[in-house]
Design a protein around this nucleic acid. Sequence first.
DNA 1: TATGAATGAGTTTTCATTCAT
DNA 2: TATGAATGAAAACTCATTCAT
Lengths: 203, 203, 203, 203
Amino acid sequence: MPADQSKKLEKKRRIIESAYQLFREKNIYNTAVDDIVKASGIARGTFYLYFKDKSDLIEQLVFYKSGESMKEMMRQAASRAADAEDLEAYATVFINALIDSLIEHRDVLTVVNKNLSVVFRAFPAFYDEDAEALYRGITGKFLEAGYTKDTIDRLAYLVFELISAASYDAITYGKPFGIEELRPLIVSASLAVLRDGFGRAEA
Amino acid sequence: MPADQSKKLEKKRRIIESAYQLFREKNIYNTAVDDIVKASGIARGTFYLYFKDKSDLIEQLVFYKSGESMKEMMRQAASRAADAEDLEAYATVFINALIDSLIEHRDVLTVVNKNLSVVFRAFPAFYDEDAEALYRGITGKFLEAGYTKDTIDRLAYLVFELISAASYDAITYGKPFGIEELRPLIVSASLAVLRDGFGRAEA
Amino acid sequence: MPADQSKKLEKKRRIIESAYQLFREKNIYNTAVDDIVKASGIARGTFYLYFKDKSDLIEQLVFYKSGESMKEMMRQAASRAADAEDLEAYATVFINALIDSLIEHRDVLTVVNKNLSVVFRAFPAFYDEDAEALYRGITGKFLEAGYTKDTIDRLAYLVFELISAASYDAITYGKPFGIEELRPLIVSASLAVLRDGFGRAEA
Amino acid sequence: MPADQSKKLEKKRRIIESAYQLFREKNIYNTAVDDIVKASGIARGTFYLYFKDKSDLIEQLVFYKSGESMKEMMRQAASRAADAEDLEAYATVFINALIDSLIEHRDVLTVVNKNLSVVFRAFPAFYDEDAEALYRGITGKFLEAGYTKDTIDRLAYLVFELISAASYDAITYGKPFGIEELRPLIVSASLAVLRDGFGRAEA
DNA sequence: TATGAATGAGTTTTCATTCAT
DNA sequence: TATGAATGAAAACTCATTCAT
């Protein structure tokens, strides 16, 4: 039973992976189910064994891909920021690392687009155990520094939005400003937001 | 001849307006050209007299709708901020007024979505004379205060991104935070970004 | 306008006619919309201009075909029975002529099958002006002979059911009895039903 | 081995029973093999262990269901008519009882529809021993009364057709006439057919 | 300019049946 | 016997676009 289960999941992931490739190359609306099954090496009907219809696949793909990527990015950023001496240094390294990750995962951005925010947004809601642990790890330092849990959630949301919105076009189009041109401003603006948030919370 | 011109423009606007309604109700990909011509009360062929194809309509619609709305929002915000005593007060009133406008034009957000940024982004590029004049008016105060033109463009971009990204879900979904809950943070974060940008620019 | 209208109706009839041929050759469920459009010499999409979907075509075809055939059969039967001296002779000739017509239109039976009854059944309800006139003509003799309108409707229904049910398999399969073997019984049984009906109505 | 046999038959009946339910609810062409196996709680492949294909199931189902119902109806009708004094009374009670049975088994009519006649028609051919015995029992009285075997077969066919055709819509749709409205006519018409048939046979 | 019937390539989806386990 | 994942041919339907009037 568990063998069968995992085999099914394995095939499902294979389909998602093929679809993901095609979506990147041709965009979602120009990719037919037919293209996906051909790329997956499965029969047309098999697709409908795993997904109710095309939009079911899209939904699952976006959630899966953006979730995975986001966790991966957070993990990398958190690990690089681990040895920071104080909170300000921690945030600086973390944000820079996050931008690096976004650059590295630029292909995800193409497909997942606005939907990345879907997961960023769900982040404080801990949509899965890994994500929860990560979020706790990252924000823990702020809790120790005296930020309230509520303030942290709001600030995290705001900063993630700022970073992803500002980076999105910079990374995918390089317009109207390149990412390296914008990077110092993003970092420094994020820090300002965090500092400001702390001041407001104490008041 | 000018009468003809305006008649043509009039019909074109009618088509855009009908399409806009449908896009809001059913989303772009679920709206057929057929639906649009029916709603416009014109014949199928006529559509292609005014637009090269469907994507031409979409492009023009998004540009038109978001451009118009944005100018309107900017105008309102600028007028409300006009009497502010200092730069900080000016920015505060302006940002609050901008959020109010976004709330008021929430229906535009639905259709134009991520594409609002398209125009926000094009802003410093002065995509039309009105817009250019507006942008000059709004940012003029910062120029006088000693910000460089370059810094202003970057900061304007960043702040607009921050405001629109953070407001988008708050206004359209009310999740994960409501707009009024987020508003003080947005304002204060924006001010922090502006202040920070000034400091960095001087250095 | 009337030219266009009739042209559209003309094409619609052409599609119905092609479908009818195929339904007879291959049966309804083995005939694809694709076969029909090929046989009609039109494009796939055109089909959907005239019929909402396949079942819409079937519905319209059955109604049209069975209606037309039935009127034709009634007309023939009525004309052959016209000179009959008394009611009994009239009915005898009429019923025999009706059976002849059913034999002649045996191909309609194949497609329209049980649905012939649909129209037979609708008969007293005068589903169209031609049919109404015909029905009035045929049953008029019985009205004069003293049958009430109510009795006529019921008897007509019963006799038509008897004739079509008993003839259906006899004509299409020749089993378990051939039509000529059954014909005298059907005629005589029908007359018996009519006579009996008259007696009951008087009592 | 006989235990196995009956187990096999048991499962076969379960499949037929499930299919029967679905056919009633959704009609034959809208019921997929998949629906049937799900409703039967068996695996897809198992279906093909018991039936060659879908049409094999349909054939067996119709035969089984209509045969069973028909025998049941005949049995009831024959038993209620058993004590009748003369042939006319016997026929009257029998026909009325048959109509009652059709009303009671109306659900069978829905599925078996026109196909009920298939079995009615097969009746004189004694498609199984039970049925043969029943038919012999019912028609025996007519044989004694002087009807020839041939006449009996033809009359039985005709009368069954008359009754089932006339009752079908009356019972399932109540249109254009209700069954109770039609019942006296059906009975009396049937008797007329029988009487007439006797006369013709003697001549 | 305006019309709307016609097009047909392109998509999605279904489903009876097979077959390895 | 029993299973159910896999198959893929076949079917239904959509829709942007063209073109004769």
